[in-house]
Each structure stands twice: as C-alpha cells, then as structure tokens.
Nucleic acid binder design. Structure first.
Lengths: 327, 327
DNA sequence: CTGAAAGCGCTTACAG
DNA sequence: CTGAAAGCGCTTACAG
C-alpha cells in the first residue's frame, strides 16, 4: 500500500496541512512539531506523489524536450547536458521526437495540451517551428537549441558560426594554405551563410559546393572539383560528416592529407578523432548549449526574466592531423 | 484559461461522467449524445489533463528509462528504439541518468517513490542493480536492456554474444586467417566471456588481452603483442572502440590492414564505417533491443504476461574492408 | 443510457 | 503556530 500524506499526519498526530507545510515552506511550523513530522516521514519512507502535487499546484516539475532524431551525431551531447541540468534542479525530463512524422507531432501536441510538462526545449524544429511558435504565444515557455541559425521569435541558445568559419580560415591561412574549396550544407540555414561569410572574410574563394550535411555531399563535391580540374590546397567542410566524405574522396584520388590538401570540419563529433587522419575541426559546445538552454528554461519557470536575444556560445578550433598548425 | 471536463459537460448539457465515458470507454453511451459531446470537445479543443487522469487512475501513462550515460556510442540507437515504441503506444518517456553519481541516483529513486512513471527500462545498471532489483520486488515493472550479459532477476532483452563471437571466428577462418589475437573488455561481464567462448570454439587461441571497452585498450594490447613478438594475422576486438585502437596501433607499426592483419570489431557503432579501413564488425541490434524492451514493458503494463527468461536478439556480421570476405 | 457523489493525494487560502 | 475545508481535474462504483 502506498504511504500518503494522511498516513504521515495520523502517525504524527497533526493535520495534513501541517505535514504539507513541513514538506514545502519549512517556515511557520513549530520546530518540535516539524522534527516529529520529519521523523515519521523518514520512518514511513513517505514521498509525495508527483501526480497529486502537480495537480494541486498546477505544475508538473517536468520539462519536455523535442528533437527530430536522437541519432544525429551530436544529439547525445546536447541531451546529456540537458538531462544533467534538469535533474540537478529536481525536475524530470520528458523526451519526444518527430521521428515518426505526423503521428509523432500529434502525440507531442497532445502532451502539450495535456499539460504534461511546464516548459519545452526544442532542437531543430524543421517543419514544426510554426507550431512551436504558436505554443509559445499561448504561454508555453520555450527555449530553442539553435545550431542551425533559425533565430526564432522566442529565447534560444546559439553558437558563433561566423567566428567559427573565420577561425577555420585563419588556421588554414596561418599554415600556408591559400586556395580553398568550401563544402556547405543547405544555404537556407542561417548557420551555413554565417560559416561561409566568416570564412571568406579571411580567406576569399569562389570554389563553393552546396549540398546536405552528409558524407555523400562531401565525397561528391571533392570528386566533382577534381574532375573539373579545380585547384585547391585546403577544404573547409561545413560539418564533420561532410569532412569524412571529403577525406574519403581525397584518399580515393590519391591526394595526401594534409600534405596535398588540408581539411577542416565543423562540430567535433565523436567520429572526428577516429578518421584517418584525425580531423581538425571547429568544435561546437553542444553539451554546454544543452546545459545553457535548460538553465534558461528553468530560470524562466522560476519567474526570473530570461533574455530574448539568442545566448551565443563560442566555438573552438580543435587541431588534429588533417590540418596541422604548420604545413 | 484551461478547458476542463466541466466546461465540456456544461456546453454539451451532460454530466462530467458522460464526457468521461465518451472519452474512455466509448461504449454505454447513446450515440447521439456521444456525437454531441465529441463535437463540443472538438470545438473547445479539450484535452484531458494528464496529471488529473493519472491521479484518478493511479497510473501515469509514462515509462521511465535509466541509463548510465547518454553519450555511449550505441546509446542513441537504443534510445531511439525506445522512444519510437513508447510514443506510438501513447505513453510518455521520462529520462534519467546516473551520470552525476549518487545525486543522480537519489533523484531517480525519489521519482520512483513519487510514482512518476508506471514502469522502468534500464541499461547497464552498474552499481544500481541491487536497487533496481529491490524496486522490482516491491512491484515496479522493470525490463533490462542487457548488452553486457548481466542476466538479472527480472525480464531482459539480450543479444547472441556467443554466436556473434563464433561468427567473427568463422568469417576470419573462411578468409584464410588462423592465428588470432583477441582483445576483450572486462572479464566479469557475461558478454565478454560469451564472445570469447564463441570465438575460441571456432578458432582456438591463447593470445587474449583483457582490458576495458576503450580505444586505449585496443591500442595498448596491439603494441604490447607486437613488442613481445607475438605472431597473429587477425584481431577480434570485443567492441568497435577497441577495434579503432587496434587499427591505430597497426598503422603506427606499419602493418597493413587487412593484408597483414584482418580486424573484426563488435557493435557496429556509427564510427565503424568511417575508420580506415572501414571496420568489419558484429552488429548488435541496439535499436531493436530498445524497441523490444519497450514493447515487453508496455505489454506487462497492459496486464499481458511477459517472459521471465531473457529475450535474445540475433547479432549480424557486417563485412567491410578491415576483414573482407576473401583474403 | 445517465448522473450525483466519493475519491485519487496533494496545496492553499481562510479562520482561529 | 495549527487545522478544517475547498479545490486541482479527472474516474468510477453505485443507483436509477
């Protein structure tokens, strides 16, 4: 049988009100009474039912998180940062994906309407940005983990894409490279434009191949550039998957990395240290983005004001063998 | 203002009881009445509060999942399988980790006592197996995703470790290899003993290096074996991280893969297709293990009997260049 | 087929 | 400092 607040009250010879006060405010209760109540709570091993507390208080001490897919290479880091922060605050984390398409979205929307959580963290909302924006307008606290430069109409955490692109260019330039091929993700992402602009400001180039954020894109872009006889001594790939494809194509073509062509990626996913050669890349602080977003949301739930401009976290150059410091 | 069941009842000119019946059983209600109620529900956009339903019914339609860390290479696949299955059943997924140590465990235990979820999925319980077992005995439905051969006292989903080891040996043997080095994880894991036994049954060897499931272990084991002048023409690494370390050590020593030494890993994590050369490995069906575990748990919650023996899913040989079919 | 009432386990004015 | 009572939004015997 479940132990309830009524059991505690009876055992301690007080009212449920008093037990509740000991549990929550702590104040306004005689210290002797409080001690006795705490003792009984301990002995019975009483823990308030989260459902009942939620119903009475109108909040669930739970936050929701919506992601398109959990298997994207850097998603685990984001999620770990979120979970750590949310747990440390005593909140629960309810996880949702858009992975099964419309059905997923319906399930998610239902949980929102059912008030299953107090606030929402979102990653890459793709086709749901409008829905999310509407939910936010209707009062749901929302924070976006914005690795793609969506710049939504609600609080978000982003990263220094422009500075990251510039850092890649600066590194290549400093190591003596001058003729760059850039392989990007889809141009309609803000992050792609920013990374490209930042790069070209330091190391101008017209050799730009647009594609998806995939290994195939990188492979194809390099094959094509080589077939067309393009002249380049370095590649800036807009993420590490693209970079992996670039490395493969260069290897197949007999170009040595980094001797003939230096390669820089973006993200620093776990794979980056295991490619051959290991990948120099611009690290996105995914775990810290998750932590920061969670902290913002929790602050908002606690009634603190949260910034409406994006909170921007710095990227960081990670040097490995695909583009060493000298040479 | 939140729309409640009372609002619907008033608008439809019926009692809350009737609305509830339309919502849940569907039966025992006059079809005209039911239609009217549904209409009102639609118009008002009414969705029952999950908290209130949970309290009244004594269950939350939510399942919990506890993992040590979310950043392990194959964890995303497990999680995706779980989320898909749980969502499709209309349940929510509450995620917990042991990532922050004792504090995490306390938070988790609190949520269990608070009846925040109806059933629990666990991955690799390390130091919490006793706690979990106790919770299961007290009535919490639990299913373990058992990739390590823990064989707990409650339902679990495992994989064919022994057959996987045998498949690795068979593949190497068939491609003409005969002198094997095996690099394992910790011997106290059931999966390690099984993989080793399965392998040696087909391809006997005394060259076995025990370590952790890490890149360093693989690197060190090969360096040591080479330094000691051991003679081997193939390596069976007990997971893909170890295999990555093996590849690196072989490359550093100037041994060609697969010409001089063929390498087979275990798991098929995303990285496996990006090593140089890409890794032949024994694939563990992590996503299906997640799906299966979730399905078992949901079946249990629905009152269906669930098997007490482990449900065992087959591994699968994935051939890539580090150990091709011929040669 | 339908509804009034009790109950799920808490919190929170309100009164003392 | 403490408690009786109402209320959070549902479900579910029970009675008709």
């Amino acid at each position: 049988m479940r132990v309830t607040i009524a059991d505690v009250a009876r055992q301690a010879g007080v009212s449920k009100t008093t037990v509740s006060r000991v549990l929550n405010t702590g104040a306004e209760v005689d210290s002797t009474t409080a001690a006795r109540v705490r003792e009984v709570i301990d002995v019975l091993g009483y823990v308030p039912s989260s459902g009942a507390v939620g119903l009475a208080r109108g909040s669930s001490r739970t936050i929701g998180m919506l992601t398109p897919s959990l298997t994207w290479p850097w998603m685990s880091e984001v999620l770990q940062g979120v979970v750590d922060t949310v747990e440390a605050a005593g909140y629960g984390l309810l996880l949702f994906t858009c992975h099964r398409g419309a059905d997923s979205v319906r399930h998610f929307a239902g949980q929102v309407s059912a008030r299953a959580f107090d606030g929402l963290l979102v990653v890459e909302p793709e086709n749901t940005l409008d829905t999310i924006t509407a939910m936010h307008r209707r009062g749901l606290p929302v924070v976006l983990i914005d690795d793609r430069g969506h710049q939504p109409a609600f609080p978000s955490v982003a990263t220094t894409n422009r500075a990251g692109g510039a850092a890649a260019a600066g590194h290549l330039l400093a190591s003596g490279r001058g003729r760059a091929l850039v392989v990007t993700g889809r141009r309609d992402f803000g992050c792609v434009r920013e990374r490209l602009d930042g790069f070209r400001e330091i190391l101008p180039t017209d050799l730009v191949a647009e594609g998806e954020f995939t290994e195939q894109t990188g492979h194809l872009a390099v094959r094509r550039a080589l077939a067309e006889g393009r002249d380049f001594d370095c590649v800036f790939a807009h993420n590490d998957l693209i970079a992996a494809g670039v490395l493969r194509a260069l290897r197949e073509a007999g170009r040595r990395v980094p001797e003939d062509v230096a390669v820089v990626g973006f993200d620093d996913i776990p794979m980056a240290r295991h490619t051959e050669p290991p990948l120099t890349t611009i690290r996105q602080p995914m775990r810290r983005m998750g932590e920061t977003a969670a902290r913002l949301l929790l602050a908002g739930l606690a009634g603190e004001p949260i910034p409406h401009e994006p909170v921007v976290l710095p990227t960081e150059l990670v040097v490995r063998r695909s583009a060493p410091a000298h040479g």
